[in-house]
Amino acid sequence: SEEELIEKAEKLRKEFEFIWNGIRFIIRENADEIRRFEELLKE
């Protein structure tokens, strides 16, 4: 039914948001290391 689809979509959206926030947190935490690594690659 349509309601089930909406519920599934909402659940997926929440899971995606949770994963995305996790990725963003990891990137933020490691931003300095990532930048340093990029500098090494440029040399």
Rank of each mutant, 00 (worst) to 15 (best):
S1L: 06
S1Y: 07
S1I: 13
S1R: 11
S1W: 13
S1F: 11
S1V: 08
S1N: 10
E2W: 14
E2Y: 13
E2S: 13
E2L: 14
E2D: 07
E2A: 11
E3H: 09
E3R: 07
E3N: 05
E3S: 11
E3W: 11
E3I: 12
E3T: 06
E4Q: 05
E4F: 11
E4T: 08
E4A: 13
E4N: 10
E4S: 04
E4V: 07
L5A: 09
L5S: 04
L5G: 06
L5Y: 03
L5N: 03
I6F: 11
I6K: 08
I6V: 12
I6A: 08
I6L: 11
I6W: 11
E7W: 07
E7L: 10
E7H: 06
E7K: 08
E7I: 12
K8N: 09
K8E: 11
K8T: 10
K8Q: 10
K8H: 07
K8W: 14
A9K: 04
A9E: 08
A9S: 04
E10Q: 06
E10A: 05
E10L: 08
E10D: 08
E10N: 05
E10C: 14
K11A: 09
K11L: 10
K11F: 12
K11Y: 07
K11H: 09
L12S: 03
L12V: 03
L12P: 03
R13L: 11
R13W: 15
R13H: 12
R13N: 06
R13S: 05
R13Q: 10
R13G: 11
R13V: 10
R13A: 09
K14Y: 08
K14G: 07
K14L: 08
K14E: 05
K14M: 07
K14H: 05
K14Q: 08
K14T: 12
E15T: 14
E15R: 12
E15I: 15
E15D: 10
F16I: 03
F16G: 02
F16T: 01
F16P: 00
F16V: 06
F16E: 01
F16Y: 06
E17D: 02
E17F: 03
E17S: 04
E17H: 04
E17I: 12
F18D: 02
F18N: 04
F18W: 14
F18L: 08
F18H: 04
F18A: 03
F18C: 15
I19H: 05
I19L: 05
I19D: 00
I19W: 09
I19G: 00
I19S: 01
I19K: 00
I19E: 01
W20C: 12
W20N: 00
W20I: 12
W20H: 00
W20K: 00
W20E: 00
N21C: 15
N21K: 10
N21Q: 07
N21F: 14
N21S: 07
G22L: 15
G22A: 14
G22E: 10
I23G: 02
I23S: 00
R24P: 01
R24D: 12
R24G: 12
R24W: 14
R24C: 15
R24N: 09
R24T: 11
F25H: 07
F25P: 07
F25C: 11
I26Q: 01
I26D: 03
I26P: 08
I26H: 02
I26R: 00
I26K: 00
I27P: 01
I27R: 00
I27A: 01
I27H: 00
I27S: 01
I27Y: 04
I27Q: 01
I27G: 03
I27M: 03
R28L: 10
R28N: 08
R28F: 10
R28A: 10
R28H: 07
R28I: 12
R28Y: 10
E29Y: 12
E29G: 14
E29T: 08
N30L: 15
N30C: 15
N30F: 15
N30I: 15
N30Y: 15
N30S: 10
N30W: 15
A31C: 15
A31E: 04
A31G: 07
A31N: 03
A31L: 09
A31K: 02
A31I: 12
A31R: 07
A31M: 12
A31S: 05
D32H: 09
D32Q: 03
D32F: 08
D32L: 13
D32C: 15
D32P: 09
D32E: 05
D32V: 07
D32T: 04
E33P: 07
E33Q: 11
E33D: 05
E33G: 05
E33W: 15
I34T: 02
I34Y: 05
I34W: 13
I34Q: 01
I34E: 01
R35M: 09
R35F: 11
R35Q: 05
R35S: 11
R35W: 07
R35E: 05
R35L: 10
R36S: 01
R36D: 06
R36Q: 07
R36I: 06
R36G: 02
R36M: 09
R36N: 06
R36E: 03
R36V: 04
F37K: 00
F37P: 01
F37D: 00
F37Q: 00
F37H: 02
F37G: 01
F37V: 02
F37Y: 06
F37A: 02
F37T: 02
E38K: 07
E38M: 14
E38C: 15
E38F: 15
E38I: 15
E38R: 04
E38N: 03
E38Q: 11
E38V: 14
E38H: 07
E38W: 14
E38L: 15
E39D: 03
E39K: 13
E39C: 03
E39W: 07
E39A: 06
E39I: 11
E39H: 06
L40R: 02
L40M: 08
L40Y: 07
L40H: 02
L40W: 12
L40V: 03
L40E: 02
L41Y: 07
L41S: 02
L41P: 01
L41K: 01
K42E: 04
K42R: 10
K42F: 12
K42V: 04
K42L: 09
E43L: 12
E43V: 10
E43H: 10
E43Q: 11
E43N: 12
E43D: 10
E43C: 13
E43F: 12
